[in-house]
C-alpha cells in the first residue's frame, strides 16, 4: 500500500489549478490547420494548379490569415500576464519551443501576405488596383513565385511540427514525451487543411486532389498514432501509465470513437468510396476530419496535463 497526502494546491481537486483550458487546444488546432493550408497553397503555386481562375489558391491565404489570427487570439487569451506579451520579442530562448514558435509566427504573416498578393482574389483586385499591378509584376517573375511557394511550404512544416514539439518538450507530462508528436501534429494539421480545401474548392479537379491527398494523410496519421502508442507502451512506467489513459483509461472512448473512429477511419472509408465512384462527394467526410482534428488536440492537451510523474 502507498498512501500519499499533500497540503499543496492540487489540480485534481481544484480545477482552477489546471494549467491549460480550451485556449491552447484551439490554438494548436488552428495553428496546425493554417500550417497545412500553407503547405497546400505553396504546393498549388509550385504545381501551376493555381493558374485556374477558380483555384482554391486564391482563397487559402486570406483564410489562413483569419484563422491564424483567431488562433493567436486564443493563445493571447490563455496568457495570465497579458500586458507583458511583448516580452516574447525581446529575446530568443534557444531551448524554448514557445520562443521558436513565436518568432516563426512573426515570419508566417509576411509569407501569407506575399502569398495573398501573388494569388490576389478578384474581389481585392477590383478594390485595390495597385495591389493588382504588384501581383501581376510578381507573377511575371517565376523566381518570386517559387520563393513564396517554398517559403510557405517550409514555414507551414515548421509551424505544424512546432505545435507538437511545444507539448513534447514538457517532459514532466509523460503522455507528451514522444518525438512523434511533432510529425503527428503536422500530418493531422495538413489533413484538416486538405479537408478544408475539399470544402472550399470549386474546381472538381482540386476537390479530387484534396480527397486523394487526405486519404494518404489519414493513413499516415493512423500509422503515427499507432507508433506513438507503441512507443509509450514500451517506455518507462510513467509513460505506460500515461498511455493507459487512452487504452482503457478515462480518455479511451473519446479518443477511439471521436478521434480515430469518426475523425480518421470513417472519413477515410467515405473518401475512398468517393474516389472509387461508389458514392458521391459530400461535405460529411471533410467536416468529420476537421472536427476529429479539433477533438484530437483537446484529448492530447487534457490527457497530457493529467499524466504526471509519480514515485514508485
Amino acid at each position: 500500500m502507498r498512501e500519499y497526502t499533500t497540503t499543496n494546491s492540487n489540480p485534481f481537486v481544484d480545477i482552477s489549478h489546471q494549467v491549460w483550458a480550451w485556449e491552447i487546444p484551439v490554438y494548436l488546432f488552428l495553428g496546425g490547420l493554417v500550417a497545412g493550408m500553407m503547405v497546400i497553397s505553396g504546393y498549388l503555386l509550385l504545381s501551376d494548379r493555381w493558374q485556374k481562375p477558380k483555384s482554391v489558391a486564391y482563397v487559402l491565404p486570406a483564410w489562413s490569415l483569419v484563422l491564424l489570427s483567431l488562433g493567436m487570439l486564443a493563445l493571447f487569451l490563455d496568457l495570465e500576464h497579458k500586458l507583458y506579451v511583448w516580452r516574447l520579442y525581446l529575446t530568443f530562448e534557444i531551448t524554448s519551443p514557445m520562443s521558436w514558435g513565436s518568432w516563426i509566427l512573426i515570419l508566417v504573416y509576411p509569407a501569407l501576405l506575399a502569398n495573398l498578393v501573388i494569388a490576389l482574389p478578384n474581389a481585392l483586385k477590383g478594390r485595390f488596383p495597385s495591389l493588382a499591378t504588384l501581383s501581376d509584376r510578381m507573377q511575371e517573375r517565376p523566381w518570386v513565385l517559387r520563393s513564396i511557394a517554398v517559403v510557405n511550404v517550409a514555414l507551414g512544416i515548421m509551424v505544424g511540427i512546432y505545435t507538437g514539439i511545444l507539448l513534447s518538450s514538457l517532459g514532466a507530462r509523460p503522455l507528451w514525451s514522444s518525438g512523434l508528436l511533432g510529425p503527428l501534429f503536422l500530418v493531422s494539421g495538413v489533413s484538416t487543411a486538405a479537408a478544408l480545401v475539399h470544402l472550399l474548392a470549386k474546381e472538381p479537379e482540386e476537390r479530387a486532389f484534396a480527397v486523394r491527398a487526405d486519404i494518404g494523410l489519414l493513413v499516415t496519421e493512423l500509422v503515427f498514432i499507432v507508433l506513438f502508442l507503441i512507443g509509450l507502451m514500451n517506455a518507462s512506467r510513467v509513460q505506460q501509465e500515461a498511455a493507459s489513459m487512452l487504452l482503457g483509461g478515462p480518455f479511451t472512448a473519446v479518443f477511439w470513437v471521436l478521434v480515430v473512429g469518426l475523425g480518421v477511419l470513417v472519413p477515410m472509408v467515405i473518401q475512398s468510396l468517393a474516389v472509387a465512384r461508389r458514392i458521391g462527394h459530400t461535405h460529411v467526410a471533410p467536416l468529420l476530419v476537421i472536427a476529429g482534428g479539433l477533438v484530437f488536440r483537446f484529448v492530447m492537451v487534457n490527457a497530457g496535463q493529467l499524466s504526471h510523474w509519480t514515485p514508485t
Partner: peptide
C-alpha cells in the same frame, strides 16, 4: 516583469511546485 503567464513552466515541473499568482505571473 518578464513572465507572460504562458504556464509552460507549470506544465514542465514534475513536482507541481509552481502556480500562477493572481497577478498573472
Amino acid at each position: 516583469e518578464k513572465c507572460i503567464g504562458c504556464k509552460a513552466c507549470l506544465a514542465a515541473c514534475p513536482y507541481g511546485a509552481r502556480f500562477t499568482h493572481p497577478d498573472g505571473y
